[in-house]
Amino acid sequence: MSTLHAILGGGKVADIMLWKDKKSAGAILFGFTTLWFFLQVREYQFVSLLCDTLMLTMTLGLLWCKFAGRILNRMPREINIQLPESTCIYFIGTINWFLLKLSEITSGKDFKLFFVALAGLYMMSTIGTYISSWNLIYTVILAVGTLPALYARYETQVDTIVARCISGVKRLYELFQVKILDKIPRHRKSN
Rank of each mutant, 00 (worst) to 15 (best):
M1Y: 05
M1P: 11
S2Y: 05
T3E: 04
A6M: 04
I7K: 15
L8K: 09
G10I: 13
K12G: 06
K12L: 12
K12F: 13
L18R: 03
L18M: 08
W19F: 03
K20T: 03
K23Y: 10
S24I: 08
G26H: 06
G26T: 11
A27R: 02
I28W: 03
L29A: 08
G31W: 02
F32Y: 12
W36D: 06
F37T: 15
F38S: 10
F38H: 15
L39G: 09
Q40D: 07
Y44L: 12
Y44M: 13
F46A: 12
V47P: 01
V47E: 15
L49R: 07
L49S: 06
L49E: 05
C51M: 09
T53Y: 11
L62E: 07
L62M: 12
L63K: 02
L63P: 03
C65Q: 14
I71N: 05
I71W: 15
L72Y: 15
L72I: 04
N73W: 14
R74I: 10
M75P: 06
R77C: 13
N80L: 12
S86K: 07
T87K: 06
C88T: 11
I89A: 12
Y90R: 00
I92F: 04
G93E: 07
T94F: 09
W97L: 15
F98E: 08
L100V: 06
E104G: 01
T106L: 15
K112S: 11
F114I: 00
F115R: 03
V116G: 00
V116N: 03
L118W: 00
Y122A: 14
M123T: 13
M123W: 09
M124P: 00
S125V: 03
S125E: 14
T126R: 13
I127G: 00
I127S: 02
Y130T: 10
I131T: 09
I131H: 03
S133T: 05
I137V: 06
Y138D: 03
I141L: 13
L142E: 01
A143H: 04
V144Y: 11
R153L: 09
R153T: 05
R153V: 04
E155M: 07
E155V: 00
T156W: 09
V158L: 00
V158D: 01
T160I: 03
A163V: 02
A163E: 11
A163F: 07
R164S: 14
S167P: 00
G168N: 12
K170L: 10
F176V: 01
Q177K: 15
I180H: 07
I180A: 13
I180T: 13
D182I: 15
R188Q: 14
R188E: 12
